[in-house]
């Protein structure tokens, strides 16, 4: 499959790994991750759920073993995947999401979430909706922007995850200090960014 590059500086390739059921390599700017999906597969007895598939996420950092922050990423991605999957269609099975970080130059969470979504689409997992994450930054002059300009100090960082049907927020993750108005402004700005992602997804999958 061809590498598809977008005007928003995203590029992606689907199905690059042969072992998983679905995989995607995604780079946003200089941040790059690989996501692989296995599912529905056999589940360990202790994680077995009788009414739905259990979703597991494994996040591997660039080097070394996963730490506390990586566990946070895992739980964020797992929660998002759980809401978007039709897990009740495959009871007593597991869906495994594996994320491998290749390069981190900011906006790592949103890149990992987007890669997970594309890998799920590649694997053909039953989903209620697609999701896309957008990272929004605020500098000390209180300007909001979507692309991380390197070297500039940021006062706050917002990560919003939207669904594809009604563009509702399904997850948000923030860092730094900001006012309520600035938060709402960031939501609006991110919403515009997520529209681009969804059109990009469609372009990638159709190619």
């Amino acid at each position: 499959m061809e590498t598809v590059t977008d005007k928003t500086n995203i590029s992606c390739k689907l199905g690059i790994l042969s072992r998983p059921d679905g995989s995607a390599i995604l780079s946003e700017g200089n941040t790059t991750v690989i996501a692989g999906i296995y599912g529905p597969v056999e589940v360990k007895l202790q994680k077995l759920l009788i009414d739905k598939a259990s979703v597991e996420c494994h996040y591997r950092p660039k080097s070394g073993l996963p730490g506390v922050e990586d566990r946070l990423y895992e739980s964020i991605i797992r929660n998002i995947c759980e809401t978007s999957f039709y897990a009740s269609l495959h009871p007593r099975t597991a869906i495994l999401v594996t994320i491998q970080e290749l390069q981190n130059s900011g906006q790592l969470i949103s890149c990992a979430i987007n890669a997970a979504c594309l890998a799920c689409l590649n694997a053909g997992i039953d989903m209620k909706f697609m999701f896309s994450a957008v990272t929004c930054y605020m500098n000390f002059e209180d300007d909001l922007y979507l692309h991380c300009a390197s070297g500039k100090e940021t006062k706050a960082m917002f990560v919003f995850v939207f669904d594809s049907t009604e563009k509702r927020i399904i997850a948000s993750h923030t860092k730094g200090s900001f006012t309520k108005e600035q938060f709402e402004e960031a939501v609006e700005l991110s919403k515009e960014g997520c529209e681009d992602r969804f059109t990009y997804y469609k372009k990638v999958l159709e190619s």
Partner: peptide
């Protein structure tokens, strides 16, 4: 057409 999850027919 090509459809994606979440699309309503």
């Amino acid at each position: 057409e090509f459809v994606l999850p979440g699309h309503i027919i």
